[in-house]
């Protein structure tokens, strides 16, 4: 199968490459690398700069940053993916119903969504995490809920647009029930937008997880996550800047890859945005 043109650019290729590489790391790093390599403390090499023994240096407890960042990938990716999945699972039916049913249902649901959108997503996530108590599972819930209103809004807009297309009306007169109409005609046509938005949301979720963990209201030790590593580095910035740079670069590369992938995906799936980015 030939790749769509938008992926055959250097940006698209780089995006695919980065996303695949990071997914691969998230899946196989915990299999190949024994877990204790990331927690083993080398007391003689605390805050060591990159050396042959520790290619990316060590942290304040003498733990190897390369192993920690590789193993942290799974936590960050897993949290972000689960959170985005959650926001889709809630947002998709919400947006579909709102866009398809219209009238009062739509008015009430969208008033609620608009209200939620007034809360900055990070503030909402932080508050939820603080309320529920910070741990891995609640981080997912916090980010998932915080991202839902935005996704619901986009899906509603798409559903509204698709529902009035002539092919949907034609399908209606072809005797399809409401359920079949939604599943066979509306859903497939809003999926491109949902997929593109999920990719972009995934990038934002990685950033949000890092932010939450950085503030101590996300992933908790001993789980290794990139945000936690950056938080730990704050007190040693002068002596060991690599302790911040290494996890920071990991976050940046992941989000960059997802954004480039998302851009290419949007260009490939959405004929309306042809030439616009």
């Amino acid at each position: 199968m030939k790749l769509p043109a938008s992926f055959r650019t250097s940006k698209g290729m780089l995006g695919i490459g980065l996303v695949l590489a990071i997914l691969l790391i998230a899946v196989i790093a915990p299999v190949l690398i024994p877990a204790d390599w990331a927690t083993k403390m080398d007391m003689r090499a605390r805050l060591s700069p990159p050396t042959w023994a520790h290619p990316l240096g060590t942290d304040q407890l003498g733990r190897d940053l390369m192993y920690r960042v590789l193993l942290g990938a799974r936590t960050s990716i897993a949290i972000a993916s689960a959170a985005v999945l959650m926001s889709i699972v809630i947002g998709l039916p919400l947006g579909l119903i709102s866009g398809y049913a219209g009238r009062t249902t739509d008015n009430v649901l969208m008033r609620l969504v608009d209200t939620l959108l007034a809360f900055p997503a990070l503030l909402l996530a932080l508050t939820i995490s603080a309320v529920l108590g910070p741990n891995l599972q609640n981080t997912i819930i916090a980010i998932g809920i915080a991202f839902t209103p935005f996704l619901a809004r986009i899906i509603r807009g798409e559903a509204l647009r698709v529902a009035q297309m002539p092919y949907v009306e034609a399908a209606r007169t072809a005797g399809n029930s409401d359920a079949r109409l939604i599943v066979r005609h509306i859903l497939p046509n809003i999926m491109p937008a949902v997929i593109v938005q999920s990719t972009i949301s995934l990038a934002f979720a990685i950033l949000a997880e890092a932010g939450l963990s950085f503030l101590g209201l996300g992933t908790q030790p001993p789980d290794a996550s990139w945000g936690l590593m950056i938080q730990a580095s704050r007190d040693y910035l002068d002596r060991a800047p690599w302790t911040a740079l290494v996890p920071g670069a990991a976050v940046a590369l992941t989000v960059l890859g997802l954004n480039m992938f998302g851009d290419a995906l949007r260009d490939a799936l959405d004929p309306r945005s042809k030439g616009a980015s």
Binding site: P166, V168, A170, R172, A174, G175, H185, N189
Partner: peptide
Amino acid sequence: WRDMQMVFQDPFASLNPYM
């Protein structure tokens, strides 16, 4: 609707692109 059907204006919008 089994007895009456419609043919729409825009041939590019009246067929489901994913079917």
